[in-house]
Design a protein around this nucleic acid. Structure first.
Lengths: 194, 194
DNA sequence: CCCTTTATTAACCAATGGTCAATTAATAGT
DNA sequence: ACTATTAATTGACCATTGGTTAATAAAGGG
């Protein structure tokens, strides 16, 4: 009612994002309206536009913090004690795992084009792919053609993007993922890993 | 203005679909509103709801006629005079070609979930996959494990779904497609085709 | 010529994303 | 302690969207 709340009741990027994450994870980007977020927070939807320029920026602000994750996953795999061939396999599996356990983020990173979010996600996605490609490059027995890495990535991407929405989490698709990764490794032609 | 037009000026499923196809192909599903279709047709948007239950049904009615295409493509490849190994390669390339030259349809068939269209497209998509899988099965030197075919499909799917929106048509991605198909064939482990 | 069916309009609805002037709490300056 | 400024918030507003519906006019059959 009153135009400004007392300190303790004030909003903050953090409060908003926490609630938004909950809702987005439950219902997906499109099914969550700015008004519904505001309602859950007990404020007017106008207030959200003080903290975030628009819905996309709010969503972006929310997954921004998770962006580093994929890169970190790659780093972790690279730093592990496994053999190179095994590392490669693990890398692929972890990629799928990441995609299916962070479906919102994945969708925005690699799947959403033509909704206005376009440009935003592009650079983090490219960054992540670059890191992925370099990791694969290092883990192969012989330096592979770049298009081979690209194909491997697209194949994993196909797997993830199909299971988005069908599988609730990675665990439900684990067996299939294992098979698919074997397939991709053979496609790469890395002798040691098949 | 008048509540009903003279015969010659009346709408028809066909007139609507023709205009709708033009718009959808140009701007994509979401960016085309029922009102914009009506405006282009010079009628009120209410009239559209006399001929189609809703936007989805209108879109579905539009691509329904094109659904047989993919199946037909598969048949054509199977009936060709090429060697089995070459057929397999051609099949994969034609699949990609279909996807990138019919981006709207492809998106609806294999990518759109959670927008209400869900159930509609499911069965034609499954049918097409079934046909695809059987074709691959027949063209392999040795009967492959089913999950191998599934992996091959997902890999092609990854390729197409990535290039959706980036490539205007198949021709722009042809070289990449060629490489990717080689990759997929190696993943399948069909001796004759690599 | 009337009556029924068919096609169309226009006014309406509830949601949505987004903007903005007005208002109030907090805060810094004097 | 008073005041001017700034930071948040509201709520009314906008255009657009998908969708519904009562009223109405043309077509067509008896």
């Amino acid at each position: 009612m009153s135009a400004r709340r007392v300190n303790a009741d004030e909003l903050s990027r953090d409060k908003i994002i926490r609630k938004a994450r909950f809702l987005f994870e439950e219902k997906g980007y499109r099914a969550v309206s700015m008004r519904s977020i505001a309602a859950e927070l007990g404020c007017s939807h106008g207030a959200l536009y003080y903290h975030f320029k628009n819905k996309e920026q709010l969503f972006y602000g929310m997954i921004e913090e998770d962006f580093a994750q994929l890169n970190q996953i790659i780093d972790t795999v690279m730093a592990s004690e496994e053999h190179r061939a095994q590392k490669l396999r693990t890398l692929f599996l972890r990629f799928i795992e990441y995609g299916l356990n962070n479906q919102n983020q994945y969708e925005f990173m690699f799947l959403m084009k033509g909704e206005g979010v376009d440009g935003l996600m592009q650079s983090p996605a490219n960054e992540s792919y670059e890191k992925f490609a370099q990791a694969v490059f290092k883990l192969m027995d012989r330096p592979p053609a770049i298009y081979l890495i690209w194909s491997a990535f697209l194949s994993l991407h196909g797997f993830v993007s199909h299971f988005l929405g069908y599988a609730q989490s990675y665990s439900e698709a684990e067996a299939a993922a294992e098979n698919h990764v074997t397939f991709v490794l053979r496609g790469l032609g890395n002798e040691g890993s098949c």
